[in-house]
Design a protein around this nucleic acid. Structure first.
Lengths: 154, 154
DNA sequence: CTTAATTGCAACACTTGCGATGCAGTACTT
DNA sequence: AAGTACTGCATCGCAAGTGTTGCAATTAAG
């Protein structure tokens, strides 16, 4: 809390006045991240748009979100049931997108959907935080290329 | 410390008697992980063995190590210079392995070595901890296949 | 100009985790 | 059997993080 306050250039007590306690503040952060992510999911049109277009749009949108809210939602939603439900809904949309990619033949038929989904998340996190200098468009290209083609020669 | 003690089925004070303080215990954990990882690197013969063989041997060896010592060495070596140096040495061996893969044409010439290296680590971590039921051989296959070929159809 | 709202600052109580110590009981060694 | 080493248990002091409150100063609004 002290670190957050000083990072915000504000006294610690002021933070406590705005957010009753630690969990309320965390929930607010989750809300903000979930709001941003939801907008990205909507605008990517994961269901309707051509699959490669949707993928690229999702990646280009979600990478800045991941950078702006560098919090691991998996670990932090434990005490916020509402946020957890919301996150699961968003997660389900991505699961469906992966299934669509499998159905439409963009992913090899023998790949496990859960694996594909995890790798997608992981690549996003990696490019977002370990390669902070990559601009979102290039980062999105890199992730999509790595996900679909890997790094090996033909 | 209390959680570690109870996980070990031992009183908290006993842990403090064995390890003077928190950092000493962490250093011991790092030592153990670094020892295991070093053996894996040696036995993989990253320099001499045919590249696909070395890769597979490394993966099959390092995945159980990652599972047995689920600690993020990047964050935790800050206060242990000796361990950090040792980790950097091991890291350099993997960097060289990636360069070798590039030189020998196993990786596309246009892939960034740092990116390849990061993805390798990330895939290992992911399969090790998010797919704990996969046996090391299958897990190694999966990582190698994903790394080299990606998940996309031809 | 007066009032209401917000902030910084100092101080306080409370909780938690860390590390240390003394003591008694148990196990292992010679 | 005597001594040594290790452990669990209870207890203590210390430091750090959290949350609260009162007060004075500043700012914004009527």
């Amino acid at each position: 809390m002290a670190a957050i306050a000083s990072a915000a250039g504000v006294d610690r007590t002021t933070v406590h006045r705005r957010f009753a306690n630690r969990e309320v503040l965390l929930s607010a952060v989750f809300q903000a991240k979930l709001d941003s992510a939801e907008r990205v999911l909507d605008e990517a049109r994961l269901v309707e748009a051509p699959l490669p277009v949707a993928l690229h749009r999702y990646l280009e949108g979600i990478i800045p979100v991941s950078r702006e809210w560098p919090v691991d939602t998996r670990l932090m939603m434990q005490k916020d049931p509402a946020a957890r439900v919301r996150r699961q809904e968003q997660s389900a949309r991505l699961d469906a997108f992966i299934r669509r990619a499998l159905d439409e033949g963009y992913l090899r038929a023998d790949v496990d959907a859960a694996w594909a989904r995890t790798i997608l998340d992981e690549l996003v996190d990696t490019v977002a935080h370990r390669f902070p200098d990559l601009e979102p468009p290039q980062a999105a290209d890199l992730v999509a290329d790595t996900l679909l083609n890997g790094l090996g020669a033909t």
